[in-house]
Write a protein that binds this DNA or RNA. Structure first.
Length: 551
RNA sequence: GCCCCCGUAGCUCAGGGGAUAGAGCACUGCCCUCCGGAGGCAGUGGCGCAGGUUCGAAUCCUGCCGGGGGCGCCA
């Protein structure tokens, strides 16, 4: 019996009470059921009577008593108590509880998946680091969180496209090209240019591909370095992401918007909407009509498109490609753009928050020996994805980045995340999976099989009950993590599950001792253990982290 | 000056209005004849401050204090 089943049972009881004329309320579609912290409060508790009290115009405890009477008739419900101000504490019957192990094992990879989310086409844009250098730590955080969020949204019914906005237009690309050219000639980088080892490497690669490049005029040479250098840099970024386990469905080139006339089309569209005007020789968008601090320049007085013009065209392009929901993940240093982007969305006649959603993530710092790390060996400037992966590996990096709320600035202690002990959360979780895999291997070698039959009533130990309860939480952890765009909930849940499993394992012998025969209880516990393995594997999968069979 | 994020145990962090606020680490004391001790059990210890909304606030609202990050016809 899952929490959703329990909710359904409570709803059925309310409906029965209403039908019997004992309660005058609108029957809710679902009710909140939670696992009480205190075991004496039963297997599940609901606050529904407290919430129905006002519409029913009766005291909460009285409402609770009425619902309780009908709830006792529901299948799988063993006992119902009214407690405190009007909570309903329920106990499931043993078999209904244990049956969950079978449900999970039979569902396998699908356990946790649902259709609770909107069935919509979602364009999820993340990372989108400029191709002027390696992916920095902020982008790395987005790679981990964004990919995990994509998996979560897919797991709850959305059709997700992962998209990378490749910012290959504008002044920073010119600076990149000039930096490459200078380096190829053995000169100092320009004042506002880029430094770091990777510039030398790419400059050398460009020269290797185009040996003539140093013999042509500056303009021409710079253009070669721009085209070739961006391509090389981008290939390196894609490789880093791929090695990180993140592959995008679409790599979108900003340049294509400018070359195809998409920017002009977007401006024309906005002009038709009456949101465009001209002043001081520039073209402005009336974003302040929709909550922005001030109007924004779209085309500068020199005739060049301003940065936001690319965003306008890009947003329109995404909508025209059929995405109901455009989600953009940005670093905290971009929070100032939310207002204008949302206003832009409204200028198009769309609904900010629904058609356009912007997620902001805070910064990431690395710590070693208690000291913050500042410099990258490779980049010469800021720390990169590769620095992090080199230090702790992909699994630990992804897990560490996905484990915290995006609202929090995080310090990743490399000493902790490189450890092979349970100080390290990702090891704690992966170890639990490996330990189960080992147990199941041992069972196979002993010839002890789970079989097709399960007597769920045998799973009656307190620790089994606790484990079943935790396993039952998984689908709604996934659903809420997706809905709230908070993948860290999955990681925290897995840590809780691993702990609950260890407690079960410590108290409940699974395999027969010595030459004792396997019993029905042995087999029932193998169902439960396999169910735990499934949930750990599914959860780690949502984070893009491996679930090792041995380690 | 304005905007965004954060402030919960000694440390790193969970806690989308509900009962006695949790986990890991650290510290103290325990548990190994056999499934991976990379584990388990017990104990110590906390919501920045002040108001407000509510039957009920760590959670929602306002103000203040402290920390971090932003506020271009740059991209």
């Amino acid at each position: 019996m899952t929490p959703a089943d329990v909710s359904a049972a409570v709803v059925a009881a309310i409906r029965a009470a209403v039908a019997a004329g004992e309660l005058a309320v609108d029957v809710p579609a679902e009710v909140t059921v939670e696992r009480p912290k205190n075991k004496e409060h039963g297997d599940y508790a609901t606050n529904t009577a407290l919430q129905l009290a006002k519409p029913a115009g009766r005291p909460p405890r009285e409402v609770a008593e009425v619902v309780a009477a009908h709830l006792r008739d529901q299948p799988g419900i063993a006992a119902v108590d009214v407690a405190g101000p009007g909570f309903l504490n329920l106990r499931l019957d043993q078999a209904a509880q244990g049956e969950l192990a079978r449900t999970i094992v039979l569902a396998g990879d699908d356990y946790g998946r649902s259709s609770t989310g909107e069935k919509e086409r979602v364009n999820l844009e993340f990372v989108s680091a400029n191709p002027t250098g390696p992916i920095h730590l902020g982008g790395t955080r987005w790679a981990a969180v964004g990919d995990s969020l994509a998996r979560l949204l897919e797991a709850t019914g959305a059709d997700v496209t992962r998209e990378y906005y490749f910012n290959d237009h504008g002044a920073q690309i010119d600076r990149f090209a000039r930096s490459l050219l200078a380096r190829a000639r053995g000169q100092e980088p320009p004042e506002d240019g880029y430094g770091g080892e990777y510039i030398a490497q790419i400059a050398a690669d460009v020269v290797a591909r185009r040996p003539d490049v140093l013999d042509v005029p500056d303009d021409e040479a710079q253009e070669v370095f721009r085209a070739e250098g961006v391509e090389l840099m981008f290939a390196e970024i894609r490789q880093s992401l791929h090695d990180f386990g993140v592959d995008f469905d679409v790599y979108f080139h900003e340049n294509s918007l400018h070359e195809s006339g998409a920017v002009e089309r977007a401006v024309d569209r906005l002009r038709e909407q009456g949101q465009i005007y001209e002043r001081d020789g520039a073209v402005w968008l009336r974003t302040s009509e929709f909550g922005d601090d001030k109007d924004r320049v779209v085309v500068k007085s020199d005739g060049q498109p301003a940065y936001i013009s690319g965003d306008l065209a890009y947003y329109l392009d995404k909508r025209e490609r059929g995405f109901d929901r455009v989600v953009i993940m940005l670093g905290a240093d971009h929070h100032g753009y939310i207002g204008r982007l949302m206003a832009m969305c409204a200028c198009f006649g769309d609904e900010p928050g629904r058609n356009l959603e912007i997620l902001i993530g805070q910064m990431v710092n690395l710590v070693r020996d208690g000291q913050p790390l500042r410099m990258s060996k490779r980049a010469g400037t800021v720390l990169t994805m590769d620095d992090l992966v080199d230090a702790i590996g992909v699994d630990a990096a992804r897990y560490a980045l996905a484990r915290y709320s995006m609202d929090s600035t995080i310090d990743i202690d490399l000493d902790v995340w490189a450890k092979q002990t349970n100080d390290n959360p990702v090891f704690y979780v992966q170890y639990a999976h490996a330990r189960i895999a080992s147990l199941l291997r041992n069972a196979g070698e002993l010839g002890v099989l789970r079989g097709d039959d399960l007597d769920p009533s045998l799973l009656s130990h307190e620790r089994e009950n606790e484990l079943l309860g935790t396993l039952g939480e998984f689908p709604r952890v996934v659903a809420s993590a997706a809905e709230l765009r908070e993948p860290h909930r999955v990681a925290r849940y897995l840590e809780q599950l691993a702990g609950t499993y260890h407690r079960f394992y410590d108290a409940c012998r699974v395999l027969p001792m010595g030459d004792e025969p396997a019993t029905d209880l042995t087999r029932a516990r193998l169902w439960l253990v396999e169910a735990t393995r499934v949930v750990l594997a599914n959860g780690l999968g949502l984070l893009g982290v491996n679930a090792p069979e041995r380690m």
